Amino acid sequence: IEKFEILLKSDRIDLKELKNLAFNGCPSDNGIRSLTWKILLNYLLLDRTQWASHLAKQRELYRGYIRETIIQPGLKSTSLSDIVDHPLSSAPDSSWTAYFKENEILLQIDKDVRRLCPDLCFFQRKTDYPCAEIMNQEIGFENLRKRIVSTSLKVESQSQSRLTGRLEFQSNQILRKNKTNSSNFISDDNEYEVLADGCEAHWEVVERILFVFSKLNSGQSYVQGMNEIIGPIYYTFATDPNVEWRGKIKRTYVS
């Protein structure tokens, strides 16, 4: 522990020496593991004197990502000013086509992160640092939580009839009603506590990070299992004993 503390307090951190120390594991005492991971993952620079300016730049960059990928589409989805580009438009360049495709990815991310590390209640708790850029939006703004709810209500499951070969559609409400009649069925509606407006659970923060990542990396997008990778990283950063670091991690793009 002493070797870690001496190295991490240096003005210029020796990356090779840090890797050698961390090879057999990092102690969690005094936030050593959190700080070591941040350096090894290029979250922090090796020069300690540049940490403040670097983090400020990265936080502003993340705010820009949020405005571009979440806030602007959320405001546009509730706007009636654009008559040409509408949800039923079949134009190949329609922004609504991309919007609906993104919803499919968002639903998969939501399904995965809700069950992230089920042995820990941490991810179901609300964070003390909700995203102000999203929470301070005007009434009618469609955040990811509302977007998921509205998408889930509109999604219909389709099955092919063996007799006619036609597609038969059945709404989720009917499916849910049928499942409720089963004694072994547990409703998803009661599985997780719904937080009040203005609050965010930790899994929602992870969801936002993964969604922003999928939009910025459209070629790779989201792959199932990414939530299991970012989960331990986020948990380690978000439980840093240093309160200042905990506040910064909620406002910085960590993917």
Rank of each mutant, 00 (worst) to 15 (best):
I1M: 13
E2P: 02
E2H: 04
K3R: 11
F4R: 01
F4G: 01
E5L: 06
L8Y: 00
L8G: 02
K9V: 00
I13N: 05
D14Y: 02
L15G: 03
K19Q: 15
F23V: 10
F23E: 14
N24K: 11
P27H: 00
S34R: 00
L35H: 00
K38T: 02
I39Y: 08
L44N: 15
L45K: 03
S53Y: 00
A56M: 01
R63A: 05
R67I: 03
T69Y: 04
T69L: 06
I70A: 02
G74R: 01
L75K: 07
L75C: 06
K76R: 10
S81I: 09
I83T: 05
V84I: 12
L88T: 11
S90I: 03
S90M: 08
A98E: 02
I105M: 10
L106W: 12
L107E: 08
D110W: 15
V113R: 05
L116Q: 08
C121V: 12
F123V: 14
F123C: 12
F123W: 15
R125A: 11
T127M: 04
D128Y: 03
Y129T: 06
P130Y: 08
C131G: 00
I139A: 15
E142R: 07
V149H: 09
S150D: 10
S152T: 15
L153H: 12
Q158T: 13
Q158E: 13
Q160E: 15
R162V: 15
T164C: 11
R166K: 10
S171F: 05
S171Y: 03
N172Q: 08
N184A: 09
S187C: 13
E191G: 01
Y192K: 12
A196S: 11
G198T: 08
G198Q: 06
H202G: 07
E207P: 07
G219A: 12
Q220Y: 13
Y222L: 13
M226V: 06
G231H: 08
Y234D: 11
Y235I: 11
Y235R: 04
T239A: 04
K248V: 15
